[in-house]
Simulated assay, not measured.
Amino acid sequence: MPAFIVLALILVSLVNAQPHFDGGQQVGVVHSHYITEASGICASRDHGNVIYTHNDSGGKNRIFAIDKHSGNRLAILTLDGAEAHDWEDIACGPCPDGGHCVYVGDLGGNAGGERNNIYKFREPSSIHDQHIAIHHTDKLHFTWDQWNCETLMVAPDAELYIISKVNPGHHSEVVHVPKSGWGTGQTIHLSRGTYFTETSGSQDPVGGDISPDGHEVLVKEYGHVYYWYVPDGDYLRALSQRPIHLPHRYERQGEAVCWEIDGSGYYTLSEGANVPLYFYRRQ
């Protein structure tokens, strides 16, 4: 490979590895009385103005579509056949068999112990109040040696990744949940993954997202947004390296973060009533 091409690739990598975003602008307010504990968000791949969210433990088996420009609730999607014990995060991305899916994780430890279930459904063709059937093939159950989890992410190849929530001073574990587990009816026993270099400052992390192109990862803690550049799809290796700290505005109990679908920035949203939706634009 010519030297100038190698140099260009190195420069591109360095630019991507040092991203710059503004300090965050309020783009809307979630006024819906149905949404009071928004614990995760993801940007629809099929509907350009839609972000999906859900409530934390104590909520029902419902996903809410909100307008990313205003925060207004657009629709309630009821997942028939899915249980909601402690839904902690949501992810948008490819389905294992093609098309676009939404994944929601019943992963947390707030409702009498971890459930360790992930549900998926194909994005609806139109956004309106509706019921969506969840079949046995749309549920993946796993076990691992961590007691709590609030972060679910999907890569461009439909492989899933989760991150344990830990007490202050401990290191979170990142593990791969293989897509081959869908439709088998078998419990997936997760092997050990990798650990964050950073220790938790509170009970963290509480959310995360892989960019649509697969090259960038965000992980949310209560007081931070962390960033990793992943050039080769090796998320376990990348997340074992020190992250870059991105801008983050104060939120009451911010547990939700996601990329804009074109990579032009990221959103954050907090639990609570009438909370602002923030967007951090790439500079």
Rank of each mutant, 00 (worst) to 15 (best):
K179R: 10
W144K: 09
E83P: 00
K165M: 06
W147F: 15
G208Q: 04
A273G: 09
E83D: 09
G185T: 01
R62L: 10
D97L: 01
C149M: 11
V206N: 02
N117C: 13
D80M: 08
H135A: 05
A91R: 00
A38Y: 14
I261D: 14
N117L: 15
H189Y: 08
A38E: 09
A111T: 04
L77W: 09
G185N: 00
W147R: 10
V30I: 14
R249V: 14
I132G: 00
S270M: 01
L246N: 02
R62T: 13
T53Q: 07
A43P: 11
Y52P: 09
V154I: 13
H100S: 14
Q253C: 02
P276I: 03
V217C: 08
S13Y: 09
A43C: 12
P205M: 03
V102M: 01
T194V: 11
V27C: 08
D129C: 02
P231G: 15
I66C: 14
L160I: 04
W147C: 13
C149Y: 09
H135F: 00
I210Q: 05
L14P: 01
I244M: 06
I162R: 07
A75R: 07
H33S: 13
E150N: 04
G272A: 03
N55I: 14
M153G: 06
E114T: 11
D67F: 15
R122M: 13
N55V: 10
V217M: 03
V15G: 03
G23R: 08
P19R: 04
A238E: 13
D234S: 13
V104S: 01
V104A: 02
R122H: 14
R62S: 15
G112M: 04
E221F: 07
E255T: 01
S172V: 02
E150M: 05
T137E: 01
G208D: 04
I35A: 15
S125D: 14
F142Q: 07
D234N: 13
C42T: 11
H224K: 09
I132N: 00
R45P: 06
E251N: 08
Y119R: 01
H69V: 14
K179T: 12
E114M: 12
S57V: 08
E251W: 05
T36A: 15
W182D: 00
E198K: 10
K220R: 07
G93A: 01
H131V: 08
Y119A: 01
G263T: 06
V217T: 03
T151G: 07
S164K: 04
L269P: 02
G169N: 06
Y267W: 09
R282I: 09
N55S: 08
I51D: 08
A65T: 08
P96A: 06
G254Q: 01
T78Q: 08
L236I: 15
L152G: 07
S202A: 15
T53S: 12
E221N: 12
